[in-house]
Nucleic acid binder design. Structure first.
Lengths: 338, 338
DNA sequence: TTGTAGGCGTTATCAC
DNA sequence: GTGATAACGCCTACAA
């Protein structure tokens, strides 16, 4: 039963292959200066013994821990899931492990947790998603520690770290212009959570499109949400209760767009005939659930890929940026405008 | 800038506190036989130096790694998220780290990944969710290695490990009986994914309720889904296309229930007036999105709590079980039955 | 109640 | 190309 003791070590492998432990280590780490025949012999021994290097020992002796961490807190489980999945895929390919936990951006121990990751776990790098991307205390801590990290959709300071993002303002502007192009003059807008920089960026795009079309901005048509279903739903209720309600509503996330649609449904309004609904589609939720929705597609998983690539690439241009393309997906045609 | 070197070690702390490193270690691990004054001095030194024990060294020298792993693959991101969150909370309290990654139950490397967790990371324990809970190869591997693990909603072999679950058959029976009690004689049923043991358990409950009410089982009213939105939607389409369609549809998950509702909506059917829809609510999705839904509530997060408690508790009765209560949540009244 | 010696399994350094 | 040997930071044993 003490099968535990069967766990092979480098020493076992070296004995099996008839070489020194250092040579085994070289093979394991893909270092140069190993005879091809020697290498083959070692690899055979590794396979024969089903050997797996002990992560703790590796981390202790070496400079690397082969672990990176994802700091991700988002109202949408779909977002978290997609982000984790994307990064995980890349980590597997790179032989690195991803530490991912649902963090709580409001937690008083957030800074402490991150410090723990750096000091106790000794992570090789971190990936930050909004809104932590823009927490000065966190940025300062990581910079001081000299830890590599990349940011997803940061709010600013693009020179600080490698980062990946889409043109949120441009996307929101394109969508708003699309709605205006369909004949809508009163376009409602549901903002995202105020903690997220993207919320402001998307709102700016909305305003820009109105201005470009010569439509006066009406503050009554804008409601603040928090990137979740419930807030989208109540924002839509408020907008549709207006004396002069909008003929289209554009929500800053798909969860909120789903909320808008539910509100319309509750009122017996047909979409898109009686109300056009559009939304950012950070995840897959609303697009799947509600075909008539028109969305800005920005696959979160791709963001994960890009972020992981930036972190794991050897070339470490500290200012590298990956701007991903967004896509305007029009589903269902839009009927007459009130 | 080499702030890295400021990372304190036990030696630093021992010097600061004027004691030996062993004493520091004792304080860190809450061992007995430490003078209260000594303890206080050490703790002060730890705080002063912002010392955090190196996880790798701890794991290498000791027997524990202070890490547990969650093996969770589920069609619903909400489920994964809730499960992770629940377990995470308990881990934080216990000073243990949770390794959680979206796994792929079909991956050819699954067994290898798990072996890696055991051999390379040396995890203190594992939590398995369906369907991996019932993979013989995995169970055998873990048993052979002598690793502690608990299972969530296992399909059988309850004596094998501690586990947590609800009475799925009982819940499905209660829900079906509820629908029958409302006057429905033709109740459609959407099964879950065949890989999950819960699918069969729920189906059995459905059949039992029909039998108890003296209603003949009609195979045409049963469709197989895969626990996701799309399958629920197409299953509902098939059921509603029948010459004699059901007046109520009971889906084995909330994602599928949402799909059923979307199908009803597409057809212009009002819920629950023209079609009663019920579902298991493993996550929060459908219940939030669609108030008229009647659900079996079985908070996934609570399952995570229970699973983590079982794994982290010192008392390790190998056969311990935690059966959680389900709850029948009736939202919206049900109108006339076709 | 406290301290000393040794080793955990790997990588880094420096010889050969 | 390859191999000894000394760390890495902590815990387990044993002693004092």
């Amino acid at each position: 039963m003490p099968e535990q003791d069967l766990r092979a070590t480098i020493t076992d492998v070296s004995r099996e292959a008839g070489v020194s432990i250092k040579t085994v280590s070289r093979v394991l780490n893909n270092e140069r200066y190993v005879g091809s025949e020697t290498r083959a012999r070692v690899q055979a021994a590794v396979a024969a013994l089903n050997f797996r290097p002990n992560a703790a020992a590796r981390s202790l002796a070496g400079r690397r821990s082969f672990q990176i961490a994802l700091i991700c807190d988002n109202p949408s489980p779909y977002y978290v899931y997609d982000m984790q999945s994307g990064i995980r895929d890349r980590c597997v390919a790179a032989g690195v492990r991803m530490i991912a936990q649902p963090y709580d951006r409001g937690s008083p121990t957030l800074l402490d947790d991150i410090e723990s990751l750096v000091d106790a776990i000794n992570v090789d790098g971190l990936i930050l998603t909004p809104p932590v991307t823009d927490y000065p205390a966190v940025l300062e801590l990581l910079a001081k520690r000299g830890v590599r990290f990349v940011r997803v959709s940061p709010g600013g300071d693009l020179d600080l770290t490698p980062s990946t993002f889409i043109d949120n303002a441009g996307a929101a502007q394109a969508m708003t212009a699309h709605l205006i192009g369909l004949g809508h003059r009163r376009v409602g807008f549901v903002r995202g959570h105020p903690d997220f920089a993207t919320s402001g960026q998307r709102f700016e795009g909305y305003r820009a499109a109105l201005a470009a079309a010569g439509i006066a901005f009406d503050a009554a048509l804008v409601r603040e949400g928090s990137y979740d279903f419930a807030s989208g739903s109540s924002a839509a209720d408020a907008l549709l209760d207006l004396a002069a309600p909008p003929s289209a509503i554009f929500a800053s996330s798909d969860d909120m767009a789903a909320g808008v649609l539910a509100a319309a449904h509750r009122r017996g309004m047909r979409v898109p005939e009686q109300l056009s609904v559009a939304g950012f589609d950070d995840t897959a939720l609303a697009g799947v659930v509600w075909p008539p929705l028109t969305t800005i597609r920005q696959p979160t998983r791709d963001m994960g890929y890009a972020a992981a690539d930036l972190l794991l690439s050897d070339a470490s241009d500290p200012h590298e940026r990956r701007e991903l393309r967004f896509e305007l997906v029009v589903r269902g045609s839009t009927g007459p405008v009130g």
